[in-house]
Design a protein around this nucleic acid. Structure first.
Length: 932
RNA sequence: GGGCGUAUAGCUCAGCGGUAGAGCACUACAUUGACAUUGUAGGGGUCGCAAGUUCAAUCCUUGCUACGCCCA
C-alpha cells in the first residue's frame, strides 16, 4: 500500500462514509459504556443542506465522534420534521403547476399526496448530511409524523388537556390571510412600513358636536365599537358617556375612558375595534364586551363580511381589507372616499407604521377573533426557568441566559392550532351542548354554535368519552351510542347523536418540542429512554432558542421531570462574506455542497470548527476553507513522507520508550497538546480545538519534528531513519490522526488505514491517553536547537546569503550543557542549520555573522561574503529592540510601587527577564565590538 | 423604549491585568530531496473614543460613538 501522490478528497469521502454506514460504525454495540447523547435538530423534510446546517451539524459530529473515541455509547439521534406549513406549501405549489389545487381533493387524498411527495422527494437533506460526514444513527432515523412519534404527540396533547394546561379559547389570534391559518406570536415579524395616519371626525349622536379620531387602519372603522379617551383628559370629560354615530355604518358607539388612549397622540381620542386590534381587544374587554360580542368584519382571506349587527353597507361586502398587488378591491380606499365625501376627513399624515407580517407568507397579519387551542406556557415555563437558574441546564455562552429569562418570564399563551391539513390532527372531538339538545336542527344557530369538547387519544376513545358524558347528563338512552361524522353540518342534518373531529393540526414546534424523548421510546419506558435522557448537549442556532429550545425545556421537564439536556450550546449565524445575512432572495447564499466539491468535506468542517468562537456570528471566508484544504494536503504529504521512511502504524497506545532528545521532546509536546485539546473540549471551545491540533500537526510535527528526524543524504542517497524515531513518529502520527478525526473524519480514516494494518477503524480508535511526562531537559535541548537554527536562517536571510550556503561556526563562552547539546545535535545542526562544523576554538579574524543563543555566542565567518555593514546594522537593530525591552523592565523594577505591590511572581519574572535580556545585550555589544 | 452583542494587523478573527497573536493577503529569498495546495525569513497594530480603578489597562468599571441582532 502506497499513499497516492495526490490528495483527492472526493475519492475517499464516499468510500469511507458508506463503509461506516454499512458496518454500523455510527452505533457500535456498547451497552455497558457510559452513554453520550445528542439529538439533531430535525431539519425540515422539504429542506436542503444550507451553510447553517453545515455549521450546526459539524459541531455536533465533532462532539459525537469525540465521545465515541472516548469509548462512550455515543448516540446521535437523527430525523426530519414534517414542517407543516412549509411542506403543505411545497405540495400545493406542485399542484398549482399542474393547474390543480388542494381543495380539489379530500383531506385524506391530499395528505396521501403529501406522503407520496415525502417518499419521493423529501429528506434530500439526509443524503447531504452524509456528505458532510455526519455520524448519525441512521438505522433509527425518525420523522415527526412517524407512528411512534405521533403517538407521543397525541399523548402530550391529551395529558396537557387533562391537566388544564391546554385549552380552547376565543380570542384574537395572529391570522395569516395568505395561508389562512392562525400562527403564533413567534411567527410574526414586525416591520416598519411607510403608511398614513388618517384623521376622521366622528359626529356625536346628539348633534352637539364631533370627536376627532386618528387611525392607521381606516377600514376597520366598519367594526368600531367605541371611542376611547384618557380618563384624565379634561378636553373630553363632558363627552364621556355620550354616543358617537359612526359614519357609513351609522352604528351608535359609546365614548369611553381607557388608559390606552394617549392624550399626546393625534387628538387624544382613539377608535376602538376590539375584533381587529390587540390593544383594542383589551380595551373592549375592560369596557365590558365579551369576546363573543366583539364585531368581526373580515373573512379568512381578509375580505369584508357583514358584522352581526348587519350595519355594513352592502357595497362593502367582499372587498379586500386594503389594496395590494393582485387585489382589485379595496375597502380602505372606499372608506376614506366615503368619509371624505361626507366632509368628515380632517387630514392625512405620512407615518411609519409598525406592521406585523407572517414570517412564511409575508402577508400582513390580521388580528382575528377565532377559537383556537392554547398551551398554558406560563405554567410550563416556570420549571424551565428554574432549571437554567439553578444550573441543571448550562447555557453556553452564558450571555444567552438573559434573553432566555426575559422571554420565558413574559411568555404568552401559545397558540398551537393551525388551519392546515398536513400535520398532527388535533385529538379533539366536538358534539352538541347537551342543554341545546343534540338533535337540534336550527340552522341559523349553527354559526354561533358552542360545542361540547372531548379530547381523546383516538376516535374509539372519543366515542366512549362522549357517550359516557352524554349519558351522565341524561341526554342519551342506555342503548344509544355516539357516532362520528365529518362535520357539525352533518350532525345537524341528521337527528342522531354524533361527534366530529377538530379539523386543525398542531403547530410543528409543538411536536418537535418532544424530540429529546419522543425519539428514544417515550411514552414507552424503554431502556434507550432511560440511558439517553437527559441528552448531554443540545447544539442549536440562537435563532430557534424560543421556537424550539425553550419549548423542549418546558415539555421535557413536564413529562420527564428532568431537563432535556445538561448543556445548551447556542451558536451564531453563518453570514455572507460582507457580513450580511444569507438569503435566497438576496442570492448571496453559499452552498456547502459546492464547498465540499471544491475543497472536501474535511476542509469545510475544519473551517466551521475553527471559526466557531462562542457568541459570535461567522462570516463566510472561502480563503480559509481553502487554507484548511491545504492543511489536509499537508497532513497527507506528511503521511506519505512517513511511509517512505519506514514509519508505520503504531503498535502501542502508550508512547514508545525513547532515548533521543528529539523523540522525548515530541512525546512531551503530544501530551501537552492533548491536555490543551481536552480542556478545549470541556469548555466547548471549537475554535480552540481546531487551533491546537492545527498548529501541533503543522508547526511542531511537520515543520520541526519531521525535519529533525529526516535522515541525511549521503552521495545522493537518503539514509535509513533510525528505528526509535520510526516508532515514535508512527506513534505521534497516530495520535494526530485520532485527535484530528472528529474534525476531519475522512482523511484521517484513509491515512489510518494507509499507514498499516489496523484491527479497527479510526472511528472506533481510542482517544489518546499517553500519560507521558514532559521531559524538561529534552524540551530545553530541542528549544535551544530551534533557536539556533532559526537564528542562523534569519541572519543569512537578512544578510542576503543564500540559505543553502554551508558555513562553519566557532562557539564562544559555551556552558557544558551547550557543549553537550552541540555534540548531541551535530547531525541536525549540520543538515538543517547548514553548520558543518561547530568548533569551540577562537574564531579567525575577518567578517562573520555573530549569533547570541542563551549564554553562548556563535561566530560564523565567511570570508568575502559577509557584508560587514549589513551585519553591523543587523546586530545594532537587535540591540535596539532588546534595549527597549530592558529599559521598560528597568523602569518597572525601579518603581518602588511595583516592587512592593505587584504580585511576587510578576516581580520575579521581571527580574529574570531583565537579567536575561541585559546579558544578551552585552553579548551583542561585544559581538559588535569584535566586528570592528 | 428595553435587552444583548460587536469594535484588535489590509481582510477574517483569537487573546489577555504585566505594552499583542493566528490564517489569508503583502515583501524577499529558496526548489533533483514528503509537500508550490510548499519551505525560510520579514514588514505591518497609539487593541473605536474619553474618563475612572490599579504599581500596571487592549483586558476591569462608567460614559460616548459606530455597527448588528432580539423583544415591545
Amino acid at each position: 500500500m502506497t499513499i497516492d501522490k495526490n490528495f483527492d478528497p472526493a475519492a475517499i469521502e464516499a468510500k469511507w462514509y458508506s463503509h461506516w454506514e454499512d458496518t454500523g460504525a455510527f452505533r457500535p454495540e456498547r451497552g455497558d459504556a457510559e452513554p453520550y447523547t445528542i439529538v439533531n435538530p430535525p431539519p425540515n423534510v422539504t429542506g436542503s443542506l444550507h451553510i447553517g446546517h453545515a455549521l450546526d451539524n459539524t459541531l455536533q459530529d465533532i462532539l459525537i465522534r469525540h465521545a465515541r473515541l472516548q469509548g462512550k455509547d455515543a448516540l446521535w439521534v437523527v430525523g426530519t420534521d414534517h414542517a407543516g406549513i412549509a411542506t403543505q406549501m411545497v405540495v400545493e405549489r406542485k399542484l398549482n403547476e399542474q393547474q390543480d389545487k388542494r381543495t380539489n381533493y379530500s383531506r385524506e387524498d391530499f395528505i396521501a399526496k403529501v406522503w407520496e411527495w415525502k417518499e419521493e422527494s423529501g429528506g434530500q437533506i439526509t443524503k447531504q448530511l452524509r456528505r458532510l460526514g455526519c455520524s448519525m444513527d441512521w438505522e433509527n432515523e425518525r420523522f415527526t409524523m412517524d407512528e411512534g412519534f405521533s403517538k407521543a404527540v397525541i399523548k402530550v396533547f391529551v395529558d396537557l388537556h387533562k391537566e388544564g394546561l391546554i385549552y380552547r379559547d376565543k380570542r384574537l389570534v395572529n391570522w395569516d390571510p395568505g395561508l389562512k391559518t392562525a400562527i403564533s406570536d413567534l411567527e410574526v415579524e414586525t416591520k416598519e412600513i411607510n403608511g398614513k395616519f388618517w384623521h376622521f371626525s366622528y359626529p356625536l349622536e346628539d348633534g352637539s358636536g364631533a370627536i376627532s379620531v386618528a387611525t392607521t387602519r381606516p377600514e376597520t372603522m366598519l367594526a368600531d365599537m367605541a371611542v376611547a379617551v384618557h380618563p384624565d383628559d379634561e378636553r373630553y370629560a363632558d363627552m364621556v358617556g355620550k354616543n358617537v354615530k359612526l359614519p357609513i355604518t351609522g352604528r351608535l358607539v359609546p365614548i369611553i375612558t381607557d388608559e390606552h388612549a394617549d392624550p399626546e397622540l393625534g387628538s387624544g381620542a382613539v377608535k376602538i375595534t376590539p375584533g381587529h386590534d390587540f390593544n383594542d381587544f383589551d380595551v373592549g374587554k375592560r369596557a365590558g364586551f365579551v369576546p363573543a360580542e366583539m364585531l368581526n368584519m373580515l373573512d379568512a382571506e381578509g375580505r369584508v363580511v357583514q358584522t352581526s349587527d348587519g350595519l355594513i353597507p352592502e357595497e362593502f361586502i367582499g372587498l379586500y381589507r386594503f389594496g395590494k398587488e393582485g387585489e382589485k378591491t379595496n375597502a380602505r380606499k372606499k372608506v376614506v372616499e366615503m368619509i371624505e365625501a361626507a366632509g368628515l376627513l380632517e387630514n392625512i399624515e405620512d407615518r411609519v407604521i409598525q406592521t406585523p407580517f407572517g414570517d412564511r407568507s409575508n402577508e400582513v397579519i390580521e388580528p382575528w377573533l377565532t377559537d383556537q387551542w392554547y398551551v398554558d406556557a406560563e405554567t410550563l415555563a416556570k420549571p424551565a426557568i428554574d432549571a437554567v437558574r439553578n444550573g441543571d441546564i448550562d447555557v453556553v455562552p452564558k450571555t444567552w441566559e438573559k434573553t432566555y429569562f426575559n422571554w420565558m418570564e413574559n411568555i404568552q399563551p401559545w397558540c398551537v392550532s393551525r388551519q392546515l391539513w398536513w400535520g398532527h390532527r388535533i385529538p379533539a372531538w366536538y358534539g352538541p351542548k347537551i342543554e341545546d339538545g343534540y338533535t337540534q336542527k336550527a340552522a341559523s344557530t349553527v354559526t354561533d354554535f358552542v360545542p361540547e369538547v372531548f379530547v381523546a387519544a383516538n376516535e374509539e376513545e372519543a366515542i366512549r368519552v362522549a357517550t359516557d358524558a352524554y349519558r351522565k347528563k341524561g341526554g342519551l338512552l342506555e342503548e344509544q351510542f355516539v357516532r362520528v361524522v365529518q362535520s357539525q353540518d352533518e350532525m345537524f342534518a341528521e337527528s342522531q347523536p354524533a361527534i366530529w373531529q377538530d379539523n386543525d393540526v398542531l403547530d410543528t414546534w409543538f411536536s418537535s418540542a418532544l424530540w429529546p424523548f419522543g425519539t428514544i421510546g417515550w411514552p414507552e419506558q424503554t431502556k434507550e429512554l432511560e440511558r439517553h435522557y437527559p441528552n448531554d448537549v443540545l447544539i442549536s442556532g440562537f435563532d430557534i432558542l424560543f421556537f424550539w429550545d425553550a419549548r423542549m425545556a418546558m415539555q421535557g421537564l413536564h413529562f420527564m421531570k428532568e431537563v432535556p439536556w445538561k448543556t445548551l450550546y447556542l451558536h451564531g449565524l453563518v453570514r455572507a462574506a460582507d457580513g450580511s445575512k444569507m438569503s435566497k432572495s438576496k442570492g448571496n447564499t453559499v452552498d456547502p455542497l459546492g464547498l465540499i466539491d471544491k475543497y472536501g468535506a474535511d476542509a469545510l468542517r475544519f473551517f466551521m470548527a475553527a471559526m466557531e468562537s462562542q457568541g459570535r456570528d461567522i462570516k463566510m471566508d472561502e480563503k480559509r476553507v481553502e487554507g484548511y484544504r491545504n492543511f489536509a494536503t499537508k497532513l497527507w504529504n506528511a503521511a506519505r513522507f512517513a511511509q517512505s521512511n519506514g514509519i508505520s502504524a503504531s503498535k502501542t497506545l502508550a508512547a514508545p520508550k525513547a532515548e533521543l532528545a528529539v523523540n522525548r521532546w515530541i512525546i512531551g509536546e503530544t501530551q501537552a497538546t492533548l491536555d490543551k485539546l481536552n480542556k478545549a473540549f470541556e469548555e466547548l471551545r471549537f475554535d480552540g480545538m481546531a487551533d491546537i491540533v492545527y498548529h501541533f500537526a503543522w508547526d511542531q510535527f511537520c515543520d520541526w519534528y519531521l525535519e529533525l528526524i529526516k535522515p541525511a543524504y549521503v552521495d545522493g542517497e537518503q539514509q535509513d531513519m533510525d528505528g526509535e524515531s520510526q516508532l515514535v513518529a508512527g506513534w505521534v502520527l497516530d495520535q494526530i490522526l485520532v485527535m484530528l478525526h472528529p474534525f476531519m473524519p475522512f482523511i484521517t480514516e484513509e491515512l489510518w488505514h494507509e499507514m498499516g494494518t489496523r484491527s479497527y477503524d479510526i472511528i472506533h480508535a481510542k482517544w489518546p491517553a499517553p500519560r507521558a511526562n514532559v521531559d524538561t531537559d529534552a524540551s530545553a535541548e530541542i528549544e535551544w536547537l530551534i533557536k539556533l537554527i532559526s537564528g542562523v536562517r534569519s541572519a543569512k536571510n537578512e544578510l542576503g546569503i543564500p540559505p543553502g550556503t554551508k558555513m562553519n561556526a566557532f562557539a564562544r563562552e559555551t556552558s557544558d550543557a551547550t557543549t553537550a547539546r552541540l555534540k548531541n545535535q551535530s547531525a541536525a545542526i549540520a543538515r538543517i542549520a547548514r553548520l558543518e562544523n561547530v568548533s569551540l576554538d577562537d574564531a579567525p579574524d575577518g567578517g562573520s555573522i555573530q549569533l547570541v543563543v542563551d549564554e553562548a555566542t556563535f561566530v560564523l565567518p565567511l570570508e568575502g561574503v559577509i557584508d560587514l555593514d549589513a551585519e553591523h546594522a543587523r546586530i545594532t537593530k537587535a540591540i535596539e529592540a532588546l534595549s527597549k525591552e530592558v529599559a521598560g523592565l528597568e523602569g518597572r523594577l525601579g518603581n518602588a510601587n511595583f516592587v512592593e505591590r505587584a504580585k511576587p511572581e510578576a516581580v520575579e519574572k521581571a527580574r529574570s527577564d531583565h537579567a536575561e535580556k541585559a546579558a544578551e545585550v552585552e553579548k551583542l555589544q561585544a559581538a559588535l565590538a569584535r566586528l570592528g
